[in-house]
Design a binder for these strands. Structure first.
Length: 577
RNA sequence: GUCCCCGUAGUUCAAUGGAUAGAACGCGAGCCUUCUAAGCCUGAGAUGGAGGUCCGAUUCCUCCCGGGGACACCA
């Protein structure tokens, strides 16, 4: 019976630890001992290793080497058939070496597995909020990072068997729309806006902020336009609706272009507006809020946080208010076990306050998580701001990526027809862009630089696509794979199987960190090892048919794992590039 | 001033508290009569500083230095 390395070793250790603590008659709960398995790229430290002896050494008042000795014996006494040997090294590490047979069994086991074997989460419901573009503003680089990260995160949870609700919290409410409407009324041109809505509205918005710097009266006007809207002003609402309609069209066009999965819920902030008076009343009767300088605030001294405002002195609501309303709505309607907010780190304070308020309302803190990520910054290392008009539209980047990809493909694949080249160029460009935003940790600041963004060498999506495509070609040429009867595997085959087996651990790691870069790193190193294998082991013209078939099986499983990875990252699998 | 992020090869990034700190780009040397050279192979090159906890620290704690962000009528 085949088990993945982690499970296999963990079981052996945990039996040994149980025996050991029974022997020592010590009041140590063997079940609570963290058993950690490391995969080793360097076989000098075993295929897997464990540091469990270190963590036991204090409780048992013994040296880690001594404990490792006992554990080794207790593991060996279980006569594990897939272990060639266990070694003690480095003052207490247990290093495990698998038998060759284990890896061939593993390969056969892999052929029987598919993505659905990893859906272990039993349909627990999770809401993942991401993208959240603002009406009347173009999506920019920041949204690109956010949307790609959120989409992939949702894919990951989906893959693990959760019931994912992809949530788009659209910014269609707030004082900013007061500003926009104010600007439109003053300087707007209906025809121009109809012709090029997003660009035109953005210009109005930027102009408003510029003029407001000279003339502070404008800010007041903008606030009152928003206030009017909250009170149901027909004209303003009509304008807003128009802007919303145009924006939605544009967002959807971009989502399709980027191959972002459809959202399950797309709800604008304005939706929550009617629920707010009741919520404020409740908070008042629960003595959560108090009046300060004419506004209503939630004091958060108990959390060591500055107070959070939930109603402005003119009676209008703000972001936080609608956030709370939205939370109540989501919990009541969907009862998720968790909500992930994929929002930039710049809003860390907002979310601290928001979560603190949620706790005051009795919502357990582990239900909410701010999946923050760092900014995309300019060459000066500083923020790109919409208000100052310093934005880089997502569309511009996508266009540039496609252009770059097209050039490379036109040059490298003169053998394929134009039309196909264009299709490949587009897919490669989008893949490349997505991978660029996923390959680094969330907290890495990204300096905006088209050139590095569009690099098609090294740790990039095209490299992964390329690796996949080369193996794919072999499989296509090989046709039906005969079940490998003679199973001759050499060291490099075993090493590759071992690498493939590591994939089961990567998803959990990515989930725990809410970051896809672990998966990227893994896929890249897998592809790297596979490429090396590709160069050194010609398959199709191998005279040894047993080895040939075994290797065909192997690369088929390799590509299967790559495909799973691509699916989660949201990048397209391409049979040829 | 308070709070949140971040300081690792020349550059851009990795490293659930583990053993010899890994890659990519760039730089130097090789490899296409053989399944796609968008590749492979090989060489040089790094933890901001000072303490502390620990068997063991790039990782955790404190302080300092440096960069970015956020701090009630924006979202």
């Amino acid at each position: 019976m085949f088990e993945f390395p982690k499970k296999y070793i963990t079981n052996l250790i945990s039996v040994a630890v149980k025996e050991f603590s029974k022997d020592k008659v010590l009041d140590v709960d063997a079940g609570s001992v963290p058993i950690e398995i490391d995969f080793k790229n360097n076989r000098a430290f075993g295929d897997c290793s464990s540091n469990v002896a270190f963590s036991l050494s204090k409780a048992f008042r013994m040296s880690s080497t001594e404990i490792a000795g006992y554990l080794k014996a207790l593991i060996e006494s279980q006569t594990p058939i897939f272990l060639e040997r266990v070694e003690i090294a480095g003052g207490g590490f247990l290093n495990f070496y698998f038998t060759t047979d284990y890896f061939s069994k593993a390969l056969f086991a892999l052929t029987k597995m598919s993505a659905k074997d990893f859906k272990t989460a039993k349909k627990e419901k999770i809401i993942i909020e991401y993208s959240s573009p603002n009406v009347a503003k173009p999506m920019h680089v920041g949204h690109l990072r956010n949307t790609i990260l959120g989409d992939a995160l949702a894919n990951l949870y989906d893959f693990l068997g959760y019931k994912v609700i992809r949530w788009n919290h659209i910014g269609d409410w707030g004082t900013q729309f007061g500003s926009l409407i104010c600007a439109y009324k003053k300087w707007g041109d209906k025809i121009k806006v109809e012709k090029n809505p997003i660009q035109e509205l953005l210009e109005l918005y930027v102009r408003f902020h510029k003029e407001a710097e000279q003339n502070p009266e404008l800010e007041k006007e903008s606030q009152s336009e928003f206030k009017k809207m909250e009170e149901g002003d027909k004209e303003n609402l009509k304008l807003l609706n128009w802007f919303l309609k145009e924006s939605t069209k544009e967002f959807n066009r971009l989502y399709r272009l980027l191959d972002i999965k459809k959202f399950d819920k797309e709800i604008g902030e304005s939706f929550y507006s009617p629920m707010i008076p009741k919520i404020i009343k409740e908070m008042e009767s629960d003595k959560m809020i108090k009046q300060s300088e004419g506004a209503w605030i939630v004091p958060l001294d108990a959390f060591n946080l500055p107070p959070a405002m939930i109603q402005k002195s003119d009676g209008a609501t703000i972001y936080m208010t609608r956030e709370i309303a939205s939370l109540k709505y989501r919990l009541a309607k969907y009862n998720p076990f968790k909500i992930l907010y994929v929002v930039g780190n710049e809003q860390a304070l907002h979310f601290q306050q928001f979560f603190a308020i949620a706790r005051l309302m009795g919502i357990p803190s582990e239900k909410l998580e701010h999946v923050k990520y760092e900014l995309i910054v300019g060459a000066d290392g500083k923020k790109l701001s919409t208000r100052e008009g310093k934005i880089i539209p997502a569309q511009e980047i996508i266009d540039e990526a496609i252009l770059t990809a097209q050039k490379i493909i036109d040059q490298k694949r003169k053998d394929v027809p134009q039309e196909k080249r264009e299709k490949i160029a587009k897919d490669i460009a989008i893949n490349s862009l997505k991978y660029f935003f996923l390959k680094d940790g969330r907290m890495t600041k990204i300096i905006f630089n088209l050139e590095s963004m569009l690099s098609f060498n090294g740790n990039s999506a095209p490299y992964l696509n390329y690796t996949y495509a080369r193996f794919s070609k072999i499989l296509k040429k090989a046709g039906r794979i005969k079940k490998a009867d003679v199973f001759l595997l050499e060291n490099k085959d075993l090493e590759l199987i071992k690498k493939i087996l590591e994939f089961e651990n990567v998803f959990e790691q990515s989930k725990n960190d809410s970051s896809l870069h672990h998966i990227c790193e893994y896929l890249f190193s897998l592809a790297n090892q596979a490429s090396s294998f590709y160069e050194s082991s010609p398959i199709l013209n191998d005279p040894d048919s047993g080895r040939k078939n075994a290797r065909l099986m192997l690369i088929k499983e390799l590509n299967k794992v790559l495909e799973i990875g691509f699916e989660i990252l949201g990048i397209k699998t391409l049979e040829e590039i």
